[in-house]
Simulated assay, not measured.
Amino acid sequence: MLKEQTLTFAKPHNVQNANCVVMVPPKEFKFNAETAEDNEFQHQVDLTTQQIREKTMVEFKAMVASLRREGVQVVEFDYPLSDVETPDAVFPNNWFSTTIGGSLYTFPMACENRQHEVRPDALIEALTASGRHVTHQDSLEDYLSDNAHLESTGVMVIDHLNKTIYAALSQRCDREVLEDYAKRTGYGRVVSFQTALPSGHPIYHTNVMMAIGEGFCVICDEVIPEFERRFVLKSLAKDKQVISISIEQMNRFCGNILQLETVNGDKVIAMSQSAFDAFSPAQRAQLSSHGKLLPFDVRTIEDIGGGSVRCMLGEVFLPKRVNAL
């Protein structure tokens, strides 16, 4: 005789750090000419498409295996193919976000071929199979009709503990959409600012220049105009150890890191090997006080895609389903 099954949901242990991430295999990965128009971190390489995909798949699989060994839950989203290739699908954090209340948000992507990455139904199916529960869906994609964009946690670096969103404004981060998202999620404070690279162009994604953990922040503050820089740093320093990085370190993806939590509640900080090597010994020591450093060799993905480890991790804050018989 079957027993009645009751579903209950356990909230994540930590508000700032996810203990589960979505990762997408780079099965269509290649240089994306559309995104390269405003992403100065992308580079062409002398490899065939087949060689690129073989190398990036090795990098991806090694990163997934290592995270799982450390105790971070990884949901591999092996998305369904369509008629349009999605070369940047390996960077899922740009098109969705989740909350501890069970909400899934999808976002208006700036590049047309990246808009095809947005597959909420397939993602919900993968999350449900992994024991995570979506209770509410919301989309900001209607802003595409106004040519306004907001590329999720690519452009928003979020201090969940203080309900504050930090964002570098650009064509991928529209102020109106940003403030609408903050209103929908109840995050009452938005700190938006301008940036300028040596070329004079703005940073394409905030998460290449800064990262926020539970008790620290890494930031390339020299790309922020001085009158705004002081305000941003003062805001961060209220309860974070601020670790300032140079433009050269930013170019090695020192800002593109992410603090996570294991199933045992331990803190880890995911970053690329390039970033790990570019941090000074003193900076590595500072970061190590906030969690075990996990460097991953993703140099092919970095060079061609212009994004690094943090971009490859879509945080899952959704409640975990616990089956009770």
Rank of each mutant, 00 (worst) to 15 (best):
F31Q: 07
A285C: 04
R252K: 15
K238T: 10
H149T: 10
F279M: 10
F253R: 11
S289H: 14
S192M: 07
T8F: 08
D303F: 01
F91W: 00
S66A: 05
M57L: 11
R184S: 08
S130F: 05
Y204F: 15
E226V: 12
Y105D: 11
V45I: 14
D83Y: 08
Q16G: 03
M271T: 05
K292R: 15
N147D: 14
T86R: 02
D46H: 02
T164P: 07
S192A: 15
F77Q: 05
S199Q: 10
P108E: 12
A148Q: 15
I224D: 06
V268T: 08
R284Q: 15
P281C: 13
C254N: 11
A237S: 15
G188F: 02
V24P: 01
A36L: 09
S308T: 02
T106K: 03
D88K: 03
K292D: 00
F107C: 05
E70N: 00
H136S: 05
I52L: 06
A278Q: 10
T86D: 10
F227E: 14
L104Y: 01
P12E: 13
N256T: 09
T48N: 04
I245P: 07
C173N: 14
M1K: 06
T153Q: 07
P92N: 06
G291E: 11
D78K: 10
I100T: 13
L258G: 06
H201R: 15
S272Y: 02
K240C: 01
R229F: 08
S130D: 09
F31G: 04
Q171E: 10
A122W: 04
A18E: 05
V64M: 01
L318D: 04
Q171N: 09
D174Q: 07
I243R: 11
S170W: 13
P87S: 04
E54S: 04
S244H: 09
V322A: 03
A167S: 15
S272A: 03
E112W: 12
V58K: 04
D266V: 02
V74E: 03
T6W: 01
L104K: 03
H43P: 01
F77C: 02
A196T: 14
D146F: 10
F9M: 12
R230M: 13
L169E: 12
F193D: 13
K292L: 12
V75W: 09
P87Y: 02
E117F: 08
G291W: 05
V118C: 12
L140R: 08
T195G: 05
N113A: 10
F193G: 13
P92D: 00
V218W: 00
Q194L: 08
R229S: 12
V75K: 09
T300S: 00
Q5P: 04
I301W: 02
K183N: 14
V15T: 15
N264S: 14
Q241V: 06
I212E: 04
A196W: 11
D174A: 11
S308G: 03
E125F: 00
